[in-house]
Nucleic acid binder design. Structure first.
Lengths: 140, 140
DNA sequence: TGTGATTTAATCGTGTGCGACCTAATTTAT
DNA sequence: ATAAATTAGGTCGCACACGATTAAATCACA
């Protein structure tokens, strides 16, 4: 299978495993998220807002690791779907503050079962899950 | 910080760590790949072709975990850059076979140093790297 | 041998990611 | 007080991902 350079062997590449694992997990989420009409990054953003409602785009971005060039269109879609509101703050007109709407708050209950369902789908034990989490923390 | 449902706490979510780690690694690769004019998914596809030249779109797709709706445009861009050729096979006109060009083969040498540079950049020890790899294999 | 099922790529539409840039609001340094 | 620098969010362009569909070639088999 592998040819010349063992350094370049795909099976050796951490990057490839990580890239695949991430997409695979996203795919596992999709059928569950489809039921509530969310995409995976939208779900991440909502997790952040459910923790703390009324955050600035900047704060959400820092937590999610996303910049405004990704967040602005995403938040506009959530706004169009009636899940969040976007408003300038009066004290500093540069800020846009994001609030959950009633529908956005209610969505939290609909998503409450997702983590447990995902754990089951993944086929991981709690120990394996914990191992993977702490291994990933090595990269921070 | 976290409000009501501990199940939905972002820090508890494996998905989020994975999603972040994957993007972070991609970002680490970018300056290195930019020097040779490749994107990260293009690099993955080339790793596959350097292992074995002359593969069908389907075979590359299976190895990379990508379908033609992602691969076809990506391969067309590589073709435009003179890195691969795309041809129908005479025995079965449904197949498109991908070959490395001379430039595509030469690119392997230019990329040979990338894994070592990445290991250094990541700040991981060999042991940590190995731990993370095997943890990720749990998801297969 | 003809025809319906299957296989393989390609196409289309939507939604990210992200570099580069822009604009307006605010802060700072003089 | 005000010009320069900084900050926040937005826009644009490109390249993925991926579900859904299409088109063409091949296969299976009655």
């Amino acid at each position: 299978m592998s040819k010349s350079n063992p350094q370049l062997n795909l099976d050796n590449q951490l990057c490839f495993k990580l890239y695949n694992a991430s997409r695979q997990v996203t795919r596992l989420y999709q059928p569950l998220l489809k039921e509530v009409g969310l995409t995976y990054p939208q779900y991440i953003v909502l997790l952040i807002l459910w923790e703390q409602d009324g955050q600035l785009v900047k704060e959400i971005g820092k937590r999610a690791g996303l910049n405004s060039n990704t967040l602005t269109p995403l938040l506009k879609r959530l706004e169009q779907h009636g899940i969040v509101s976007r408003n300038k703050t009066p004290d500093d007109e540069r800020h846009t503050i994001i609030h959950l709407t009633k529908a956005g708050k209610e969505l939290e209950q609909s998503c409450a079962c997702i983590p447990a369902q995902m754990l089951e789908k993944s086929g991981l034990s709690m120990e394996q899950m914990q191992l993977l989490k702490s291994a990933l923390d090595l990269l921070q």
